[in-house]
Design a protein around this nucleic acid. Sequence first.
DNA 1: GTAAAATTAGACACCATTGTCTAAATCGTC
DNA 2: GACGATTTAGACAATGGTGTCTAATTTTAC
Lengths: 222, 222
Amino acid sequence: MKRNDFASPDARVQKGQLAKRVSILEAAADVFCREGFSGASIDEIAAEAGVSRQTIYNHYREKETLFMAVIQDIMDRTNGVLFSILATFPETADNLEEDLSAFAVRLNKSCICNQDAKFIQKLIATEGHRYPHLFQFWREQGPGKTDRALAALFARLAHAAPLLIDDFDLAARQFIALIKADLQMGGLFGEAPSEAELEVSARRAVRTFLRAYGQPAAQTPA
Amino acid sequence: MKRNDFASPDARVQKGQLAKRVSILEAAADVFCREGFSGASIDEIAAEAGVSRQTIYNHYREKETLFMAVIQDIMDRTNGVLFSILATFPETADNLEEDLSAFAVRLNKSCICNQDAKFIQKLIATEGHRYPHLFQFWREQGPGKTDRALAALFARLAHAAPLLIDDFDLAARQFIALIKADLQMGGLFGEAPSEAELEVSARRAVRTFLRAYGQPAAQTPA
DNA sequence: GTAAAATTAGACACCATTGTCTAAATCGTC
DNA sequence: GACGATTTAGACAATGGTGTCTAATTTTAC
């Protein structure tokens, strides 16, 4: 007889069971990321998770189900981080260059350096065509929302700061593009930029951004 | 047989044997790109190339050899195209905005829309860690050279045009980042932008770029 | 402590793939 | 048309992966 008929994954349900789920998800993320979907083997994941193969099949019916769960899990996490960072966008105009740079560093850390974010990017490139709805969802909930949120933030900032922005959405996209300019390539090769490089890169991007969108009076001298 | 009666771009290259090599390379590129290295099967490639499996093993000893040949082939092609486009960078200051936009469109067409370029990007993300030397080579000969060449071109342009650029390398990287700002995301999802979208996107990028780096006298009014 | 639930190792059938081999068919060139 | 080189289809062994099953063992709840 099952004692916990309505046992749900949260609450105080078996800690061991949940721990295994997490362990499997982590290992699976690693292996899928390293080997791709077809290259990854369940045995490898099981070994890396310190779990028997059968346990994986017990929790996730088949390889594809596990894959989906991994994606979903990572998407949730990265989107959460992303929005917590968006909340730190500067609101005032004093120290604008400084504040924007610091914001850019935070954003880059969670988009370029973050392992999860890289994983999603990679997966979209490799398996996106196989699960279009899943990645469409990510696109809308992740970058799509980020862009819109950032545009709104720039719009509000433009009231407090000497900014001349005619198209806030465009400005948001260009801001993101600029702060990634130096890091994109290294990121492809798995290189992790140092804190100092992140700072310099962000500072340069923000300076250019402000030169383009700042009112003459507020422009940084070359 | 059916596919390559006289279809090869080169005149008398129809030697049959060479035609098969080309046909195999093309099909292999397709399948590798679609399925990844481990997901691609030789049978599938053979079928798509209109060739027997044994022929592939005759020409390329094994799967990995074929893979390397495909990469090498595509790298050569894309780098060739890239540098032919760099040669069309504007040299004069009249119609600067116009000329730079047209240049940006060309660059985007060969970097974002081009199938080969997307393939390389994808392969670096998925198999880069397995063949580091191969992709290091591409990085140096491709984007590395492009960035340097573009920096030099901006330096020369700055003599003829009212541009205030203190760091040409940085300006080059930011130029590239800006012109990709609108297309990057769609490119990840395999969407092909229309000619009009390419134009608009390039124009906006160049306008921002010139606002940041153009001398006040030459700035485009907002 | 006990009983139910979860986990484990291992064997297993099944299937896809790689790479080899062979004998027949085809092609290129004279 | 003939001859050597190339290509072809198909069989083939070897390998490795998926997903199932079972029986034993461990964990967890009470």
